[in-house]
Amino acid sequence: MIKAHIEKTLKASENPLKIDVKIHVSRGMFASLYGASGAGKTSTLRMISGLLKPDHGLITNHEDLWFDSNKNITKNPKHRNIGYVFQDSALFPNMTVFENLEYALTNKRDTKHLYQLIKLMKLDELCNQKPGTLSGGQKQRVALARALAQKPALLLLDEPLAALDNESRVELQDCLLQVHKTFRLTTLLVSHDIAEILKLSDQVFVMDHGKITQQGSPKTIFTQNSLNENFEITGEISKIERQGIQFCMTVRIQNTSVKIMAKKFEIENLKVGDEILVGTKNFNPFVLKTSD
């Protein structure tokens, strides 16, 4: 179990942020740190990894003491055996994909593990390529494989999927779940994507202004506690079709299209190209025209 009771005041910005968190993640769990930008998620992850020193507190990994401000003990990050995936992938540009993975091996002779990872993460065809030639999704797949090359007990993921397109993100989410189970890892993910957390995590810590405001199962936190009977989205009508006594409108909302059923009186003033607001109030759907 990872236990972190840590405090740190970040003075870099104009308004100092005081991080004061208590995080317990049991062995084999997939936990997430959720919160808005600037809530202190990445700094918390960096403190657990040892890349940032807390002002006060205690960090233990099972029986292993990593940090204790009272006893003035700080275990060097290089001895914590942590797999860490950075948002920018942090692949070494001078090395090929294979060399990146090989560099991370704790035991250089353990090529069996290396080839297992290459096969599992489907990296065979990328092995001789330099990181500069890879797509964002491929880079993060290599970064994840590299983090696993040293056989870590704890995997820390700092928004590794944030900059990816939807297709790559879904693919890597599946990959993350697979390796988490295959290697029986304890994983801590930093994310501000609720859908991603719901899909991946057993446990979530909600952070706001450096504090943990909520914790528990993602389903409890993100569905039951915040179920709202009202929602509103805006989009543009791309098609109107008659279907029996009703009409079906195809509405483009950002990059996706949704079909919305409407009654005749609801579409009387609407035409293709109009901007509309689709919403619900007290669980009843409604459509409003917003453009002239």
Partner: peptide, 13 residues
Amino acid sequence: PTSLHDASTLMGK
């Protein structure tokens, strides 16, 4: 990028 240095450190180098 500082992440290059950090990544190598966390690999025990």
